[in-house]
Amino acid sequence: MSPLLYLTQQTINALAIGSLYALVSIGLSLIFGILRMANFAHGDMMMVGAFATLLLVHAGVPFGVAVVGGVLIGALAGALVERIAYRPVRGSSDVTLLLTSLAVTYILENLGILIFTSSPQNFPLPALLDDVVSMFDGQLIFTRINVLTLAATGVALLFLGWFVTRTTMGLGMRAAAEDLGAANIVGLDVNRLIIVAFVLASGFAGLAGVLWAAQSGVVEPAMGFTPLLKAFIAAIIGGFGSIPGAVLGGFLLGALETMIVAFLPSSITPYRDAIVFALLIAFLLFRPAGILRVQGEAKL
């Protein structure tokens, strides 16, 4: 096999998984940047987005429309969680915030199990998207959903970049992330900004959930857990609270995981997650501010 094609294949694999990590990680960083809160319920918005899409497809809605609907429902769920669970405890101690978000996770996942049972359900991906594209006599293989994942992530990232840097509301979010108290005294509508941040973060998570389900083929209530852990690692590697850091961390993590599988002996492969977590510990010990060195005050 040509080394160049092999490298291209691994790059595609790395980008496909890295873009999902980036999508989830961005939302964690966006919320942490403003509220200094690790939102463990973030992964459950993936579950909400994926199940909402599943239900809409089963109800006869065309797949594309169902995906948009699923993402919007995920976004709305995030806004509701903020309004109902997080706003009442805003400004409380870190422990209170942590326990609140863990409680929300617990409630959402069990609600998922209650409604859908804990067994995985098939995700109704249209056959067209599941098609394998094979090039160079099968030396380069990818599915259409891989390409779609990359494209969707690219569009989402461009939109977020535009929103944060070019709109008045984005400016307000950056200001709130700099100093929430000062944002209050210049009269910024902090409640509105935080709701919008949750809508964006959860919408991205919902999209990641749909894409994750499309790649793995199944939907289940606990599906958000592993991606959430990976997204935390990505966010910490990049610099927690920084959006560019989250994107960078997501793609780096995707690349690292792919490289472990592609280039190390297969006897090492089962230790992939252990290696990744060792890297996380190394970062926390030696460069806790992340690659982009976010310290104290987070930068969106």
């Binding site: 400016l171 307000g172 950056r174 200001a175 100093d179 944002a183 210049v186 910024l188 005050e297």
Partner: peptide, 22 residues
Amino acid sequence: RLFRGLSVRDNLLAAAALRSPV
């Protein structure tokens, strides 16, 4: 207590938004 990471003009824009509500 400025928004230290924001540009000088953005600091003013963030505050001026109050008088042009949308």
